[in-house]
Design a protein around this nucleic acid. Structure first.
Lengths: 242, 242
DNA sequence: GAGTGGTCTAGACCACACG
DNA sequence: GTGTGGTCTAGACCACTCA
């Protein structure tokens, strides 16, 4: 009867999950039970579980238990004309958006630079959460100059989409500029809102919206559950007519 | 004299690093010393250190010690005409590429589909590692049909770049198609080659090269140290002349 | 061989969920 | 209150680096 180290345990249980032997949503035995089953200490089990949670295969919930996690694996197109709702609905997913916070703040330096306005000028800061089929997948923090969109926060609070607000202000045809992508660890608050393990990485997408003339009209940073989303870059359908 | 929990310790030492109080390359006290200094057990120190290593702030090296890690933070443009060397050199970085492996294998299904060839047809599989200013930042696994590029592996072994090989085969002007980006945990081998902590995430970039007519000529997957690289998406400079 | 980090164990106690 | 996961401790031993 062999003993196991934590990495072997991780792979063993991980395979049971990916092979479907452990179904999605199923509850795993408790740490004590697993440590008895595999003849290892409880902390070795915990190390393995923790690694699997980092991979997005498990959801560990204090006081409740450990569960196999469903992983929808969403494909999200980014490009010049990305829209949250149309993007998800094209895959047959329901797209929803909760408003988390809307306030007016003085523009931080980075935001002011992106929007080409004076640092400290008042901007709407709106935080919202996107969900696909009910599962939280993204957090968005956006900044829009009060001078340009006086009612931005109020409209967002009424559930009006960003695209629609742009349209009402005569910008039906905005495009993305300066999209950058990187990964980092979320803070505890972000992890909570995304309903994910705090050590699990998120992908951050920073972008600036501009009107057709190239003038910046909005800046935002969206944060995505790294294991739930796969980005597809878009530059490509327009086969260059040289 | 307060005690600390692991997350507080992580933030405390993390701040010392990001504030510059602990200089890059500096060696930290040993785990034993830190556990004495902060009046906590050695394992609490380890938990905090491990989290910092995951953030890319520390390099923990068995038998040697724990060091503050330099983080170059490279900006890498992706788009229709991305080239590794030109991309990095535009930022004043030296770009290098080591060949790790070159072999001929039957095309796996996914690769065959991407290249529009028969599954199992012979393809060159070349693994190389990219470095910026000497630091490993990416691993690339590329596939090219033997039928189309008979000498691909041999040329790569001689240090000829992919762009140059395309050029010699009459494709000076290839473009990227179907770029997708996601994040995952690296396997131990990948972590080693990238010289990073195995629990630290990597970003994976899958792409297909096509000729001007849109015919696929190569498929590759590159793996990037998530904390060392920030991708900039490119679809945008060509202000659409409607 | 001495010193470093890596793994495992055993046990105590805490925080949270749910009946 | 009971049972779950979360944190911390103490100590043993292993694996690796370097003099």
């Amino acid at each position: 009867m062999p003993k196991w180290n934590w990495a072997e345990l991780r792979d063993l249980i991980g395979n049971r999950i990916t092979s479907g032997e452990l179904a999605e949503g199923a509850r795993l035995p408790t740490e004590i039970e697993l440590s008895a089953e595999f003849q290892v200490g409880r902390h070795t089990v915990r190390r393995a579980m923790s690694a699997l949670a980092l991979d997005g295969l498990l959801s560990i919930e204090q006081g409740r238990g450990t569960f196999v996690r469903r992983t929808p694996e969403i494909r999200y197109r980014i490009g010049r004309r990305t829209r949250f709702r149309t993007n998800l609905e094209a895959q047959g997913l329901t797209a929803e958006s909760d408003l988390v916070l809307a306030e007016v703040v003085p523009a931080p330096d980075g935001v002011a630079a992106a929007l080409a306005i004076a640092p400290g000028a008042p901007v709407h800061r709106v935080v919202s959460r996107g969900r696909a089929d009910g599962t939280p997948i993204s957090l968005s923090r956006s900044f829009h100059a009060v001078a340009r969109f006086a009612d931005f926060g109020a409209l967002r609070e009424q559930g009006v989409s960003v695209s629609e607000i742009y349209r009402r202000h005569g910008q039906p045809d905005y495009v993305r500029r300066d999209t950058t992508i990187f990964a980092r660890r979320p803070d505890v608050h972000e992890a909570e809102l995304l309903d994910q393990h705090p050590d699990q990485p998120v992908m951050v997408l920073q972008k600036t919206d501009t009107d057709r003339a190239g003038t910046p009209i909005g800046h935002s940073e969206s944060i995505w559950s790294a294991h739930r989303v796969r980005f597809a870059v878009d530059s490509l359908d327009d086969t260059a007519k040289s």
